[in-house]
Design a protein around this nucleic acid. Structure first.
Lengths: 321, 321
DNA sequence: CTTGGATGTGTAAACGTTTACGATGAAAAG
DNA sequence: CTTTTCATCGTAAACGTTTACACATCCAAG
């Protein structure tokens, strides 16, 4: 691992100058800055978080978790691991940090990443008012944010079902007071609209982002007389629950009903048709934006693309007849 | 925070001697050792992991997770947080570490803690053979282990139901190839035996430690004609699933069936009667034992007590008539 | 032609440990 | 009595950063 001293040697400056350049501190000329960055790039240097922390500089970024996330769905765990890895790469580490009633962090950190925030989450404004640099996973114009392209995801999933000939497709949503939940639903509607099909409100089932809730919602709906040959579950967890429900209802997947999930969790594995989220990229963008936030730049948001992975739980309509 | 230098000053020795004393390295007299430890105690000193790690000494303990745990049930997350806190207290940090096919850790660490191991887990022997110091959560004579007193827990839960007058009590188990799952079931049997009641194998339902599986198991059993007025779920997660199933079956809790869980997860909250696990103590014992393992002492195991917390999901039999 | 501030850069100490090496003394060996 | 050995302990450098401070240069103001 290259150290700051080697960078200094290559760039022909002192270590303190390198440190200043790296941390965007004033008092370093444009030209020197360039030379340092060049050296950093060629050597592939990354600051050592341990050394950094020793001198007292908080080298951790606080993780602010919404209560719902505290139960760590597999998705969030995965996102977390990616974040941790990406942060390490730039000399930072994650630390989960509790918040007070107003949503302000109780522990000091270099910056914060906000996870699982819902609309009008008071914590967002609180953070902005307090001047804490942060990036949030989700969309929130006026601050730094990064989010998967959920509208596109919902659209892709639904269109896939439509293209397979399914005309009655239901959707299993997560919390609608979360952006992700709403946006995936929006994508569903858009695909319907585009195909010239009507939107039936009774075909949207509330799965609360959990397998159990999804199971109950699907089963109750079907037993209540709702019929569909395609089902879009807005998370793999919910897809799992839905799958189980369909099985218990005596319906074969994909012969009688096609199922598509969302997230592409590795555990769910080989069989589920799902829309893939590029967690590494989301994480990378998040730390990049956090960097900008730390540097005091103007707020910026970023969408990261998703794509559909057709697997074994979707089939052309009528294939099972 | 006191530093090693202050200890040195108080104990009237040099810093290097303190370091040696703390790490059990040779070359320090019994008397000096005592003086150092005395100073450590009075100042409440704990080594700084950051500084330690900077000089190259691995100050992390590796976390070896069984595949099943990778989906981080809330229980394991909680245990993890407690472990992290306890380790920090003695100057160590946790790091999750992957294992190779034989179960050996891929990354070097000071010591290891093994989580979610099942019976005859090959990783245990592999670790022993390789001479890696470790402690496992669960019971495994011949190595260092710490485990909640699950037989007692299962017994307490069942006895509670029995004492309330329930004679037909079913049990919802987790994986039976895990010690915890089996032991809680053993406790159930013991309580039955003690009360002079017969054991009905059909009353043990497989919940696979998940809410969804629990729901399906309970519902299927009940619809299959199984009847009970008391139900012991071997985890709060499963209790949640069971609760939902009972609700969907039109059964009132606790009027028609009493339900007791296991773990006492904070999220599950105020209403569920459950057996409480003392996670802080488990964590403390684990790091204590890991310390002994690092010092090369003889293997030792420890049970930590559990206790029942009666809340709103259990009631005397017939109260709902 | 001096003074004075910017502006850019370097020197060195500090953070809290570990550890190679040398120093000290006492006991054992000659 | 001298030499060697051994156990015990201290000195100082090292780990990779940050940062207070000093230094140099340059340009504008006096």
């Amino acid at each position: 691992m290259p150290t700051i001293r080697e960078i200094a040697r290559i760039a022909n400056v002192s270590v303190s100058t390198v440190s200043r350049a790296l941390n965007g501190r004033p008092g370093v000329s444009r030209e020197t800055q360039e030379r340092v960055m060049e050296a950093v790039r060629t050597l592939g240097y990354a600051p050592n978080p341990v050394a950094r922390e020793l001198v007292g500089k908080p080298s951790t970024v606080g993780l602010l978790l919404a209560p719902e996330v505290r139960r760590y769905t597999p998705y969030f765990v995965l996102l977390l691991e990616n974040l941790a890895e990406e942060l390490w790469r730039v000399g930072l580490r994650v630390k989960e940090v509790a918040t007070d009633a107003r949503g302000l962090p109780l522990e000091e950190a270099r910056g914060y990443v906000l996870l699982g925030a819902h609309d009008h989450d008071p914590r967002i404004e609180a953070l902005q008012k307090a001047g804490h640099p942060f990036v949030l996973i989700g969309v929130y114009p006026g601050s730094f944010w990064v989010a998967p392209d959920d509208p596109a995801g919902g659209y892709l999933a639904t269109r896939h079902l439509l293209e397979l000939g399914h005309e009655e497709v239901a959707v299993l949503t997560g919390y609608l007071h979360h952006q992700a939940g709403r946006e995936r639903l929006m994508g569903y509607k858009k695909a319907l609209l585009e195909a010239g099909l009507p939107f039936h409100p009774e075909r949207v089932l509330d799965g609360e982002f959990s397998a159990l809730s999804a199971y109950r919602a699907v089963r109750r709906a079907w037993e209540g007389g709702l019929r569909f040959t395609g089902l879009f579950a807005a998370s793999d967890e919910m897809a799992l629950g839905a799958w189980a429900a369909l099985e218990d209802l005596g319906l074969r997947v994909p012969e009688e009903v096609s199922l598509v999930g969302y997230d592409d969790l590795p555990e769910v594995g080989e069989r589920l048709t799902t829309v893939h989220q590029d967690l590494p990229t989301i994480a990378r963008e998040a730390v990049h934006l956090l960097g900008l936030a730390l540097a005091g730049e103007a707020p910026l948001g970023k969408r990261v693309p998703v794509h559909l992975i057709p697997r074994g739980t979707t089939a052309r309509r009528g294939v099972g007849d």
